[in-house]
Design a protein around this nucleic acid. Structure first.
Lengths: 106, 106
DNA sequence: TTGTTATTTCCATGATTGTCGAAATATTGG
DNA sequence: CCAATATTTCGACAATCATGGAAATAACAA
């Protein structure tokens, strides 16, 4: 994980609307959610949602798969996991920090 | 942890320069680093650095303590830990995710 | 007090972001 | 092909961000 990638992913998540989108996708699980369903949930215009989704997709945090006319969005846990790992390993060094937690488990 | 706070902290870290600042502070440990030392390390103008530091301080990720004429900056692990916990708990649901790791340990 | 060092605040500027209506595109069913 | 649905792209605009030189402030030492 290079710092530029971590920063761009953090920035993508660093917006309330986008964080809500991501959280909704996580809660939807592996089945994901169609863009339209996301729109209903968040109650924002389609174009606004589309722009935010693009940001999340560009950074790899969200995946889109077309199913006929609808686009299904799913959270890319692998990338989120890598990001959390980066934060824990590179950016946390406290005794009560997750870094130790991870090392203990590993 | 409310979503607005998480988002603002993520946004603060979502910039390469600020992420470098934070990482440098983590590596400096509990002793922290004076602003001037940070400036040497990152090779950026003082005013630019000051602006970035302010962002990190405003979100609670960095603490500043005056020691005579120099200001010592330290990473606030507690807040970073809370942020990582939020991401792991609220925004990650995969089998290989830290969420399980944390639950196992706890 | 005055000078020195350390850092912030002020100010300006160009770049990026967030927002959203309207138009364009994609995919399928009939 | 054409109509209908789902979603993106275009275009525009205000708001915020990133940057950094210059001036202001803070703390001390002499």
């Amino acid at each position: 994980m290079i710092i530029e990638k971590a920063a761009s992913q953090l920035e993508a998540l660093g917006n309330v609307t986008r964080l809500q989108i991501y959280r909704a996708l996580v809660r939807a699980g592996d089945d994901g959610l169609p863009v339209g369903r996301l729109q209903e949930k968040l109650e924002i215009p389609a174009s606004t949602l589309s722009h935010h989704l693009k940001r999340l997709i560009d950074t790899g945090l969200v995946i889109q798969d077309r199913q006929a006319t609808t686009l299904i969005c799913t959270a890319n846990y692998k990338h989120m996991n890598a990001l959390i790992g980066y934060l824990a390993d590179e950016c946390c060094a406290d005794a009560g920090c997750l870094k130790q937690t991870r090392e203990t488990v590993a």
